[in-house]
């Protein structure tokens, strides 16, 4: 399959089941909602080192938020049920509770699994906190120096998908970066998907474990590293001198697939030789995203 002169390789991305929460942060202005969201999702690129993965799903208009103020929707993922509330309590407490004018709402109200995140954070009020039930949902009012911080008592948790990906194999770094930027731009604000890495792009795609260091969970993917082509088994076609990866997490596989379709198409620019994907032979992750099926419009 060739799109705009770029070969779509006959391979698939392999992704994992994770647990996901959607956090809606509102603020007096979009700027303050964004400030809180950026702090909340900082250092949350990969569960390998950050214990969670998070990113801004999209910005919300005032008409889309519970309190009628501009907001930001954040997706937050962990590998297991237990660590999701732990990470949320620590991070929301340090980043959203502290941020001027913000309030924090559950973005998955229909999810039956509930995480008592606001209920845990209420104790910052040291006994002066109070709650209100509005429309059947309980909110905690935590007194702070600015006034009051409002946070929903529980947040929904559901199964999500982490580790959707595709690789951009280009003739030179500038072409790879331009293609990656185009792909990220095309996927920005798509519902149900985040790109947890810096600017949505990864330059250091990894393999599981290490050949040399026992304590390393992940190390460089030499098969896709151009500088190692001469001394290690390489997966790079001739003429490829730089590779960038786009990693996608989301609320469900169809959302990831839809975003990949848009992103891959946008990445097929001049200087890109092919689009590939990372997998583990199909043995580790239950979610497979075959590139050619996705790009031909066939649901994977």
């Amino acid at each position: 399959m060739i799109i705009n002169g770029v070969t779509i390789e006959d391979t698939f991305a392999e992704a994992f089941t994770m647990r996901v929460a959607r956090i809606v942060i509102t603020g007096k202005t979009a700027r303050w909602a964004r400030e809180a969201a950026l702090k909340l999702t900082g250092f949350a690129t990969s569960v390998i080192g950050c214990k969670c993965e998070a990113g801004i799903e999209r910005e919300l208009t005032a008409s889309e938020t519970p309190d009628g103020r501009p907001g930001v929707s954040v997706l937050f993922l962990t590998m297991d049920k237990e660590s999701l509330p732990q990470q949320l309590i620590v991070r929301l407490g340090q980043t959203v509770l502290t941020c001027p004018t913000t309030a924090c709402f559950d973005g998955l109200p229909a999810a039956p699994d509930r995480l008592a995140v606001g209920k845990a954070l209420r104790v910052f009020g040291d006994g002066f906190q109070g709650s209100k039930v509005i429309g059947g949902r309980r909110y905690w009012r935590v007194p702070v120096m600015e006034g009051e911080f409002l946070i929903e008592e529980t947040f929904g948790m559901q199964k999500g998908v982490g580790g959707g990906n595709f690789l951009i194999l280009a003739e030179h770094p500038d072409a790879a970066l331009a293609a990656a930027e185009a792909a990220v731009l095309a996927m920005t604000n798509l519902p149900g998907v985040i790109l947890p890495f810096p600017g949505g792009v990864v330059r250091s795609g990894s393999k599981v474990g290490s050949k040399r260091y026992k304590n390393m969970l992940a190390t460089t993917n030499e098969a896709f590293s151009p500088t190692l082509r001469a001394i290690a088994p390489s997966a790079l076609p001739e003429g490829v001198n730089s590779v960038l990866e786009i990693v996608l997490d989301g609320t469900d596989a169809p959302s990831i697939e839809a975003a990949m379709r848009v992103g891959i198409r946008a990445a097929c620019l001049g200087g890109v030789r092919s689009i590939s994907a990372g997998n583990y032979g199909g043995k580790l992750g239950p979610h497979h995203f075959p590139l050619r099926k996705i790009m031909s419009g066939v649901t994977a």
Binding site: D67, G68, A103, I134, G135, Y139, E148
Partner: peptide, 28 residues
Amino acid sequence: CTYRPPHVRLLLLYLRERRGLDVADRWI
């Protein structure tokens, strides 16, 4: 103190949007 209580805003918006009350913006 004098402030803008976030729960009042939320409540009054709920009353306007979900209960159909004619709640003025100045109160919200």
